[in-house]
Simulated scan of single mutants.
Amino acid sequence: MSPLDALPPYAELLGITLTPRDGAAPTLLLPFRDAVLGRPGFLHGGAIAGLLEVAAIVSLQHALAGEGGGRIKPVNVTVDFMRGGRDKPTHAEGIVTRLGTRIANVEALAWQDDRARPIASARMNYLIVRE
């Protein structure tokens, strides 16, 4: 399964696009538009959390594809908001920190101008059903 096939419908609603990278899971881009507006001039926290979750799903599906695939089910999600997301494009990437037989741990990071200054991060655990 390609990472593009792994995108949930919510990603399309948010307008998320993928930027492929050689050998690694793609990064995601969330354009700023009215559909993701929170308070004036800022991203809605739910849109940021959704972007992080989609980034985690894409990176985990990418890692699982190299091992024959599998279905995933979220166990828990923790999001840390570090600063307000402004009215500009937002990037995100997921990093699989552990891929076990039945459980995967994934981190995700969202940033705007500088990856070293994230606006939010997340830690997620997924149950894996191998195919």
Rank of each mutant, 00 (worst) to 15 (best):
E107V: 08
L18E: 06
N105Y: 01
R71K: 15
T27R: 14
I95E: 07
E107G: 01
I95L: 11
L51V: 08
G68F: 14
A6K: 08
G84S: 13
R98D: 13
G41K: 06
I72S: 01
A110S: 05
G70E: 12
M1I: 07
Y126N: 03
L52V: 01
E53L: 00
M124N: 07
A47C: 04
I57A: 03
G94M: 12
A108L: 12
I119P: 02
F81P: 08
L4W: 08
P31V: 04
V36K: 01
R117V: 12
P31W: 11
E131D: 13
A104G: 05
I119F: 00
L7Y: 13
G85I: 00
L52Y: 05
R115T: 03
A56V: 06
A11G: 13
M82V: 01
A108R: 00
I128Q: 13
T101M: 02
D87T: 05
L64M: 11
R115V: 13
E12T: 12
T19N: 13
D114Y: 09
D80V: 12
V106A: 05
N125R: 08
P74D: 07
L127W: 01
G15M: 02
I57S: 11
H91M: 09
L14W: 02
H44W: 02
G85M: 04
L18P: 03
L7W: 11
P8A: 09
G69Q: 12
G45Y: 00
R83L: 08
V79P: 00
R123N: 12
G38Y: 02
L60P: 02
A116F: 09
P31N: 13
Q112F: 04
D114M: 03
P9M: 07
H62D: 15
D5L: 11
I119G: 04
A49E: 06
Q61K: 10
A63E: 15
E67S: 13
Q61H: 15
E107R: 13
I72C: 05
G23C: 05
P26Y: 02
T101Q: 02
